[in-house]
């Protein structure tokens, strides 16, 4: 009781990692190395983007974190406890959407959630119906709750899967590709939901192969490729590593490229009426003036901010394709 203030509860130690893995490795029986020596740290309270092309080991990692598959080597701790050993105490406080929703087609949406809630031995049956109704409401499915799940569209199934993750107050939400199958409106709703949950103090671990999705909601991110962790950190730090590009739109592309090179721009690329280049170390206004002075009809002149995708390409030197 040496705390500075008695009225304050035990402080949430923000520096505590919600997920931390050390040398986490999974080699499948066929010999394929799916995850290779992963050292991942997800800070409490973050919205953590877990990025990588399809086949890069994201889902295998998530399955190991949830105790569904056992690691070949290394260890994983979730909410400070070892997985899969402490699954019974950890998982009731974790909501998860893994590799898309899975439902009982012959049950209604509501009955699906009742089924999943019954599977949690820490879920109070007296509040079950209310919690199910609240979760359905939260994902916008209240009106379709009585419909059989097999009649649901992909987007509705995705929402029901999310509702299952929200049946209890959670400390950690693991969402694997949560916007798959959703229309733009649905994607926006999910992003809003994620922000809401995060502001309640829930840590959200969000895997995606959509970079701008991560960029829009995440505070932290990690990038995986071919089973290895390439980088992790705050999103701002990650994209700061890559420089933006200068984009000139003009019908006189060849002339524009010549002038840009003259002005000291590197890596000049012509694509029809678009010329892009690494911006030179001088005032962009001067570059523009030089273009105009050389008789280039400039229709557009912009400095595009570096996106996470640029950072990714800079890091891996490759596109965002399916790993072989």
């Amino acid at each position: 009781m040496a705390g500075p203030s008695v009225t304050e509860p035990e402080p949430e130690r923000a520096d505590d990692a919600v997920i931390s893995t050390r040398g986490l490795t999974k080699r499948y029986r066929g010999g394929q190395l799916a995850v290779d020596g992963l050292d991942l740290t997800v800070p409490a309270g973050s919205v953590f983007g877990f990025l990588g092309p399809n086949g890069s080991g994201k889902t295998t990692t998530i399955r190991m974190l949830m105790g569904l598959i056992g690691p070949t080597a290394g260890s994983a701790r979730v909410l400070g406890r070892p997985m899969p050993h402490a699954a019974r105490t950890v998982l009731p406080r974790v909501g998860a959407l893994i590799e898309g929703p899975a439902l009982y087609g012959f049950l209604s949406g509501r009955d699906n959630l009742l089924r999943y809630d019954e599977a949690d031995p820490t879920a109070d049956p007296r509040t079950r119906r209310e919690r199910v109704a609240a979760a359905l409401d939260r994902v916008g499915l209240a009106a379709a709750a009585g419909k059989k799940a097999k009649a649901y569209s992909l987007g509705m199934k995705q929402r029901l899967g999310l509702a299952a993750a929200l049946l209890q107050p959670r400390r950690l939400l693991v969402l694997d590709e949560p916007t798959n199958g959703l229309d733009p409106q649905g994607m926006r709703e999910i992003r809003t939901l994620v922000r809401e949950l995060a502001s309640d103090g829930t840590t959200v671990f969000l895997s995606s192969h959509l970079l701008d999705e991560i960029e829009q909601v995440c505070t932290h991110a990690a990038v995986m490729a071919r089973g290895r962790l390439i980088i992790q950190g705050a999103v701002a730090d990650l994209s700061a590593g890559a420089r933006g590009r200068l984009v000139v739109t003009t019908p006189d592309a060849g002339e524009a490229a010549r002038v840009l090179k003259e002005q000291g721009a590197g890596d000049v690329v012509i694509a029809e009426d678009r010329v892009t280049a690494e911006p030179p170390d001088r005032d962009p206004a001067e570059v523009n003036a030089a273009l105009v002075a050389a008789g280039v009809r400039v229709r557009g002149f912009a400095l595009e901010r570096a996106s996470l995708e640029d950072a990714f390409v800079a890091l891996t030197g490759e596109g965002f394709d399916v790993a072989g």
């Binding site: 949830m66 105790g67 569904l68 019974r88 998860a96 899975a102 009982y104």
Partner: peptide
């Protein structure tokens, strides 16, 4: 059906 993974992360517990 894929429902097994959701039962297990609920967590139903494998023995149970």
């Amino acid at each position: 059906a894929g429902t097994l993974r959701y039962l297990l992360v609920a967590p139903a517990g494998r023995t149970r």
